[in-house]
Nucleic acid binder design. Structure first.
Length: 212
DNA sequence: TCGGCGATTAGCT
DNA sequence: GCTAATCGCCGAG
């Protein structure tokens, strides 16, 4: 599936991210191409796993309870900008802020299937034994690393030129749906069916460490 | 100012 | 199944 580079297609406009329904946006992002160009390296991957974070009412969200700090201020901006944060001191997690200004919704990109620039991705991993390309974008930490995201990219627009999302015509029918991963601290909100993925895709995370 | 901890991952038992 | 790695954030004091 990742063997050929798709035509660029149409970049999703800013209006796509400004809609109210964050779960709808998270589902529609499945199958789209996420592109980055950092430090002269162009890389892209097909989004195969996302999670929705529903603003100040969602205990799993960094904006829960209306929290508004230096780190989370970007949540309250108009949809269409990046939120990249450091997790466990190691992993750069890439999110897209959605909804109108003030709503504080976000979509976490949890996995991509590498499409373009895999040689740069391998370089970013300084990878040891050869692994399948699918491994490079499996899970949010690996996705952030493969595509070169850093926390300093927070606030950058995802409508180009450094970050962009394209629709190349790939369609997803019957996406998988489950509770979000790693948010047990969120109580009842941890049970919300806010994780979406392309069934059977080898880059989707969660499956027992099959590190091919 | 200080200390606990996290939207994770990989490697070892 | 268990845990180290690793550091900025944020609530407590």
């Amino acid at each position: 599936m990742a063997s050929k580079i798709p035509s660029p297609g149409q970049m999703l406009p800013a209006a796509f991210y400004m809609r109210q329904e964050v779960t709808e946006i998270a589902i529609e992002l499945l199958g789209k191409i996420l592109f980055t160009r950092f430090d002269g390296m162009q890389t892209s991957g097909r989004i195969v796993e996302t999670e929705a974070y529903a603003g100040v009412m969602d205990r799993a969200s960094h904006a829960y309870g209306g929290r508004n700090t230096l780190r989370t201020a970007v949540f309250y901006r108009e949809g269409g900008c990046a939120y990249v944060y450091l997790c466990y001191g190691i992993h750069q997690m890439f999110n897209i802020i959605t909804g109108p200004e003030g709503l504080a919704h976000a979509v976490l990109i949890r996995a991509v299937e590498p499409v373009q620039g895999t040689e740069f991705m391998y370089k970013r991993f300084e990878t040891k034994p050869p692994v399948s390309p699918a491994f490079l974008g499996r899970g949010p930490g690996n996705t952030g690393r493969a595509l070169g995201f850093r926390t300093t990219h927070t606030g950058m627009q995802v409508t180009g030129p450094e970050i962009a999302v394209y629709d190349d015509g790939y369609t997803v029918t019957d996406p998988g749906i489950s509770p979000r991963i790693g948010v047990d601290y969120a109580g009842e909100d941890a049970l919300l069916p806010y994780r979406y993925y392309i069934r059977g895709n080898p880059s989707v995370s969660g499956k027992k460490a099959l590190r091919i």
